[in-house]
């Protein structure tokens, strides 16, 4: 943390001493920029335009009669944000007593949801030459990705919010009747 503050201080000092106005920023077409997160243990790239924010998992209010991957609903920026468990939605459910700390808020027409993250790595800049059109990941998340990038030996799938919106599970969160009966009985 000290190093971060020192870096910020050094950056501030350098900006104060060398700052001469904003240079004309040109988009760098040779690089792809975004963030690296992990959902259900799968590393994914998310573009800034596809997500609203990465937030800590807020206080949730459970919603009865929903699937088990619906954690609940929370208040976010004055609105209601349904939050889903990324692990249960795309992989194996978490063991009891363990919870994720952050969630990815996706907001686009027809889809406003928070998905818990298994990992937050930060921003990344990747050369476009490493862009892969084929998705090299397996599992349900493969359908939500639009290709990806190779980072060394690791393949990072590029999460596409439009494809994520087409996932049937997110559009039908109602629990089955027998599950509701089990919940009421318990």
């Amino acid at each position: 943390m000290t190093a971060a503050f020192a870096a910020l201080t050094a950056l501030q000092n350098r900006y104060a001493s060398t700052g001469c106005g904003l240079p004309p920023a040109l988009p760098d077409p040779e690089y792809w920029r975004g963030g690296v997160v992990g959902i259900a243990g799968v590393p994914l790239l998310v573009a800034a335009r596809d997500i609203e924010a990465v937030i800590a998992v807020p206080v949730l209010t459970p919603i009865p009669g929903t699937r088990n991957w619906v954690l609940g609903i929370a208040s976010h920026h004055g609105g209601l944000l349904p939050v889903c468990c990324g692990d249960s939605l795309f992989g194996q459910p978490l063991p009891p007593g363990r919870r994720r700390e952050y969630c990815l808020v996706i907001k686009r027409p027809g889809l406003y949801v928070g998905i818990t993250l298994s990992r937050v790595e930060g921003n990344i800049k990747l050369p476009m030459a490493q862009r892969a059109t084929e998705t090299r990941i397996e599992g349900p998340l493969a359908a939500c990705c639009d290709g990806g990038f190779w980072q060394g030996e690791r393949f990072l799938g590029l999460l596409d919010s439009s494809r994520l919106a087409t996932v049937g599970a997110l559009s039908d969160t109602a629990a089955r009747p027998e599950a509701i009966a089990e919940d009421s009985a318990s």
Binding site: G35, A48, Y102, V120, E121
Partner: peptide, 9 residues
């Protein structure tokens, strides 16, 4: 990291 991602957003 979260702050950085949100900053970029």
């Amino acid at each position: 990291s979260v702050v950085a991602i949100n900053t970029r957003i």
